[in-house]
């Protein structure tokens, strides 16, 4: 694995040149002999880039230890370094809420959270909400109220909605609407989302 990484770095060391508009592109990896390339493909060690930082965290109840590019976001850690693609990228700038996860129990925008910052902390994503085959009451409420259409913003909506109830913010329709306004739904499922939070609140608050 180490070998492959250093290889990649080596192949990047091409000489600086200016490619004119009519010129051809530059291919670093194509220098690799075919057999080696096939090998690299099979091994598929994840090559990290930049300066790396070690992160040791708990994600959905499981320990996660990895060496990661210090520039990476928590979102790109989950989606591209772990198979946790339930968390979505909608804007990458904290402007839509699709990437909402819980960090130590609180919703955060994972796109604006440096991956390095989760060291020693607990992350819960949409994949970690259900207990076995049993849906979380909020997940069930989203189904019952059809509080979604395309489903792309849904994981983020549900993570916020759970916090809306557990944080004691589901006190009135307007309070729920306000709390849920950090999650944009382009399909416009807001009416269903409000109803889902109200339904789940009854169950969760028992």
């Amino acid at each position: 694995m180490e070998d492959e990484r250093s290889e990649t770095t080596q192949t990047c060391g091409v000489t600086r040149r200016v490619v004119l508009a009519s010129g051809a592109g530059a291919a670093a990896a194509s220098i690799l002999p075919l057999e080696q390339r096939a090998q690299a493909q099979q091994q598929f060690a994840r090559a990290e880039t930049g300066q790396t930082v070690q992160v040791s965290a708990n994600v959905n109840g499981r320990p996660v230890i990895l060496e990661i590019d210090s520039r990476a976001s928590l979102l790109d850690l989950l989606r591209e370094r772990r198979e946790l693609t339930g968390t979505k990228k909608g804007c990458d700038h904290g402007q839509c809420g699709a990437c909402t996860v819980h960090l130590d129990g609180r919703p955060v925008s994972s796109c604006l959270t440096l991956a390095a910052k989760i060291d020693g902390r607990q992350v819960t994503t949409i994949e970690g909400l259900a207990e076995g085959a049993d849906l979380h009451p909020m997940q069930q409420a989203f189904i019952d109220n059809d509080a979604l259409q395309c489903g792309y913003c849904t994981p983020g909506q549900i993570m916020s909605a759970v916090a809306c109830v557990t944080g004691g913010h589901a006190t009135s329709p307007d309070a729920i609407r306000e709390f849920m306004s950090g999650n944009i739904c382009r399909c416009g499922a807001y009416v269903g989302i409000l109803a889902a939070v109200q339904q789940a609140a009854k169950v969760m608050e028992g």
Binding site: C12, G13, A26
Partner: peptide, 9 residues
């Protein structure tokens, strides 16, 4: 091309 990690442009 000189950026570490870049494979192709």
């Amino acid at each position: 091309m000189e950026t570490p990690g870049v494979v192709q442009v």
